[in-house]
Amino acid sequence: MATVAASGRTRRRRRNLLESRRFLATALIAPAVLFILVLVGGPLLLAMYLSLTDAVGGTLGGEWVGFDNFLNAWRDPNFRRALRNTLLFTIVSQAIVLLCAGLIAHALTRPIRGKWLLRFLIILPWAAPVPLSTIGWLWIYDSLFSVVNWVAKQLHLVDQFNPPQWLGDPTLALGAVISVHAWRIIPFAVVIFLAGLASIPSEVEDAAKVDGAVGLKKFWYVTLPLQLPIATVALLFGIVFTATDMTVVYILTQGGPFNSTQMLTSWAFFTGIRGGSLGEGAAVSLYLLPLLVVVAVLMLRFARKVEVT
């Protein structure tokens, strides 16, 4: 009898525990926290440790060298160019993304024939694996078989012997990398913008119409302010996706011509993994950390803002 009573108490306690918001919240969020600690926190701490040692490829430790790796990296002109490129690629590509995604999303809200097919086609670049689609771009920009150059040659728009080298001229190569980054992130931004547009209540639209706000005026005074929070979310995600990516540069240019398109990620790879200076490679990659911390804080603040409203 006593045993039955005891087991009943245990069951009740368990049920009460599950009813407790504090316990349940902790239990539900624990797997995600564990996941992040193991797969993000662990490697991040390891990278910090390696950046302070003279670790070489294939090892996970070395002699303590303090901030030498950071200083050595800073003195290297290739590193400084990679840092500048990371900022340039991110800012310019995101400006293009915001502009194009805004226009496309607005166009797609209008009643046009074949809208679903259009939406499907726009989403495709996002669905395709980045390495595959970048290889496609590599062929579009190829030094010998570029389809762009072929068309331009047929139309006698370029020098037949020396057509533009999209990946061989530093300025054009920067443009090529930016265009691929923008191309792959535009679909993601379009989806977010569409969701944002759909969330604007029809009453607001009607009220704007009654007040005589149409066209650009309506966009400036009504749609844009309402869309701004969601656009910022797209922007912050876009910054993270671009600044931390090395696939595009690695496949498209290998950092060339003459290392003029290196990003921090690719230069960290070439220095740390290919070149064997693992500690210095870790230091190069950690230069990204402050930028990403700022972006992460902004993302969290915006997320909270949206939650409150």
């Binding site: 590599l138 920009y141 030094s143 020396n162 061989g168 060339g256």
Partner: peptide, 12 residues
């Protein structure tokens, strides 16, 4: 030469 040599891959 032509300026394609700056854009070469290992197969070019």
């Amino acid at each position: 030469m032509s300026n394609e040599i700056f854009a070469w891959t290992a197969a070019s």
